[in-house]
Design a protein around this nucleic acid. Sequence first.
DNA 1: CGCGCGATTGAGTAATTTCAAATCTAGTGG
DNA 2: CCACTAGATTTGAAATTACTCAATCGCGCG
Lengths: 188, 188
Amino acid sequence: MSIALRRHMEAIVPLTDAEFDHILSYFTTKKLKKHQFLVQEGNEVLHEYFVVKGLLKASYTNETGKEHILQFAMEDWWITDYQAYVNQTKATLNIDCLEETTLLCFSAENKKKLCAESHKVEHFSRMKTTSGFVALQQRILTLLNNDAQSRYELLLAQYPLLFQRVPKSLIAAYLGVSRETLSRFSGK
Amino acid sequence: MSIALRRHMEAIVPLTDAEFDHILSYFTTKKLKKHQFLVQEGNEVLHEYFVVKGLLKASYTNETGKEHILQFAMEDWWITDYQAYVNQTKATLNIDCLEETTLLCFSAENKKKLCAESHKVEHFSRMKTTSGFVALQQRILTLLNNDAQSRYELLLAQYPLLFQRVPKSLIAAYLGVSRETLSRFSGK
DNA sequence: CGCGCGATTGAGTAATTTCAAATCTAGTGG
DNA sequence: CCACTAGATTTGAAATTACTCAATCGCGCG
């Protein structure tokens, strides 16, 4: 079950069995059903989560009730309200399950300890964050440079699997388009 | 001159004189005049840059010639084409100076070495990247949630100093708005 | 004085949203 | 197996927002 995490980490840093067991001891497991919330607006965010199985979304809902999706997370992805997790502030995002989900939970405190005691883990974390950073820059450029339709097509090309697991209305909320508009060009 | 870098790093990790001197030995200095390019589309991106003095912009120009600004960087900020720098691919961005600029240059190779040999530097790097990551998520939410005018007002509130150093047309290119549209509500 | 860049203004156009209604679909209970 | 319901998707039409193109304005500098 935690073999997924090991594979995920070993793609960046090699680990001995003992090292991995030690790392794993800093994680706890959590299972959630579809529609359950992992993080709710206004609450503290103590953990970062690694998705072993399932699918979630992190979203912001504004005063007018409109929901914008900041990220999806499926197997081998990490998710949390990073703003709140990093700065130890209250969540502004909601994170909930689109499917039954199994997670490995990494508390900010444990992450800090483990990164301090293990250069390998710190390195792994830096690498992961760096690729996340690059991906976010890419997404910003896509938002700035492309109209709704080409954003849709780019996402479809990049994550075809996502479209089989997520309703189109949520894809729209991720792309920053109304579901009606998205519907109009998903047909072509 | 490099005292700026030291202050910048010591805000996250304490350093002895010897440690800092060692770190600094991995950097080189570069000075550029206004309008000079630091990175050009199609070239290799060997360095990441710390801004000692000055102001730059990193932007993407699409086929139709429209320019979108991914980031500005002024004193104490880092800048490069991260996508290209991290993945060792050709630049898709252009980075040029809006003012006469002094930089400290950190090659990918040196960064790798230094992070490997110094847990402190690796930690510093992770922290910096993490806060950058959070800031980018925030920007994405702003792009998704706010119309042009409120993006303008938010930026003005967050970086008032930027507006004194950067022409409005570039602010527009950063916000993803035409300069005409921005002009229409900058008056109120 | 006049050039040149940046900013503004106006008018028409294109893209997207909103609101409303009609369809379609998957899962549930009888 | 079928009818029914809730959620998801599609479609239409009007309203909005922002864009483009073009012209004008303002100002600092040689």
